[in-house]
């Protein structure tokens, strides 16, 4: 659990400060989650201050097994969390499904 002001995106797992999410949004999920300048709780709902396991990922992520395992190999370079506590709200999940995006919870509840 991290007590910093940083939060992890529940969809991609990237770790950024709340401010970053508010100003620039999530570098991976902005097109679907629209964090930037979103005042009505999107960041609170879709990012989690509680995460564990810090992964630094560079640009050459395609070659990384770690990235593949965590399913972050197609995302931008950055700091990611291994485990993000919390789940996206059901509303958001169904929105994502409509856009053909599969949401895989990062809190350890995903099974397969």
């Amino acid at each position: 659990m991290s007590s910093r002001t940083e939060r992890a995106c529940m969809l991609c797992g990237i770790i950024q400060s709340y401010r970053m999410f508010l100003e620039a949004g999530c570098p991976n999920c902005e097109s679907v989650l629209h964090y930037a300048d979103n005042e009505d709780g999107q960041i609170q709902n879709c990012t989690s201050p509680s995460y564990e396991g810090l992964v630094a990922l560079g640009d050459d992520n395609k070659a990384s097994w770690v990235a593949r395992w965590l399913r972050i190999e197609s995302f931008v370079a950055g700091l990611y969390a291994v485990k993000v506590n919390g789940k996206l709200p059901p509303q958001i999940i169904s929105d994502l499904e409509e856009q053909n995006i599969s949401y895989r919870p990062r809190d350890g509840s995903a099974q397969d």
């Binding site: 969809l11 991609c12 620039a24 949004g25 999530c26 570098p27 991976n28 999920c29 902005e30 097109s31 679907v32 930037a36 070659a63 990384s64 097994w65 770690v66 593949r68 395992w69 399913r71 197609s74 995302f75 499904e97 856009q99 053909n100 995006i101 599969s102 895989r104 995903a110 397969d112």
Partner: peptide, 29 residues
């Protein structure tokens, strides 16, 4: 940031975790 979401989509995202198991060809940790 308004790039297309590149994460798992319904089509590609069904890869089971088992298929991602590491092999010796993967980089060393």
């Amino acid at each position: 940031t308004h790039t297309v979401y590149r994460g798992d989509t319904a089509a590609s995202g069904l890869v089971s975790q088992k298929l991602l198991m590491p092999s010796i060809n993967d980089p060393a940790i």
